[in-house]
């Protein structure tokens, strides 16, 4: 367990090196947030919905703040797989699954925390109707954080599967783009899932993509009442088990295959 933790620490340190990039990212994400909120405000002006505007605004800010958690962006690793540099890592006495899990986790966590904290502070300073709203209650906030953690574990497991499949297909960009797309659409990043047609929502909310951000955000805004939190965690837990299971199986087979091929 210790070695996976130090892999994690290492990535963490590397991520903090890019503070300049984080600043650019914050500004970029703030602009995107403001643009989206402007559009929703204009839309609401003509045609108010049952879901209050303030909840949509909060939804947008939380999505923007944790945007980095969504995208799989470890191009470094992808290049390694493509160029065969991965052979070095095969030589290390670690389970590749655990190694990559730690690596992905560190990237997502650090990349997004560096951006999320300042962004949320900025967003809370904005005037009424533009800024992020307070959580529904203190327990709601705590449950939302738990949901976020579970969702993050879920996403890392999912990305590890992508990585595993990538190793078998020569072309990773196309495949990755497809997954990123499913991700941005069905995670609620392009359009809040709460604005999807009601019939769609029943399905979309169960998909793994909704687990990372949509589920915790709904806990935060109070749209999912406290007593239903268990249900949310259950769905997340089921996906987590499925993904870890598939991932472990895939990496085991990959490793065997690579040894046969001689790297």
């Amino acid at each position: 367990m210790r070695k996976y933790f130090s892999t994690f620490l290492m990535r963490w340190k590397m991520e903090t090196q890019y503070r300049g990039a984080a600043l650019g990212g914050i500004i970029c994400q703030m602009v995107f947030g403001l643009i989206l909120i402007s559009v929703y405000r204009a839309l609401y002006m003509g045609n108010p919905q049952s879901m209050p505007l303030s909840a949509i605004v909060t939804y947008v800010w939380l999505q923007q703040a944790f945007f980095r958690m969504l995208l799989s962006s470890d191009n470094d690793l992808m290049d390694k797989i493509r160029t065969g540099g991965i052979a070095y890592e095969m030589c290390r006495p670690v389970s590749l699954y655990g190694y990559y899990y730690a690596r992905i986790m560190a990237m997502k966590l650090m990349g997004s925390l560096l951006r999320a904290v300042p962004m949320l502070v900025l967003a809370s300073l904005l005037p009424e109707g533009w800024g992020i709203g307070a959580p529904a209650s203190v327990p709601a906030l705590l449950l939302a954080l738990m949901g976020l953690a579970l969702g993050l574990f879920c996403m890392c497991a999912l990305e590890n599967i992508t990585m595993g499949i990538t190793m078998r297909t020569i072309d990773f960009k196309g495949f990755q783009a497809l997954l990123n797309l499913l991700m941005t659409t069905f995670s609620g990043n392009i359009l809040p899932l709460t604005l999807f047609p009601d019939a769609w929502q029943r399905v979309v909310r169960l998909l793994p993509y909704a687990q990372l951000l949509d589920a915790p955000i709904r806990l935060y805004t109070g749209e999912t009442p406290l007593h239903q939190a268990g249900q949310v965690f259950l769905i997340q837990g089921i996906w987590l088990c499925i993904f870890v299971g598939i991932g472990l199986y895939l990496w085991k087979r990959n490793t065997r295959k690579m040894i046969v091929q001689g790297g």
Partner: peptide, 20 residues
């Protein structure tokens, strides 16, 4: 990818009918 963006516009229209 682009169809996803377009889908967002369609869904918005579906829900809000118009923008101004």
């Amino acid at each position: 990818m682009e169809a996803g963006e377009m889908l967002a516009v369609l869904l918005i229209v579906n829900r809000f009918q118009a923008l101004n």
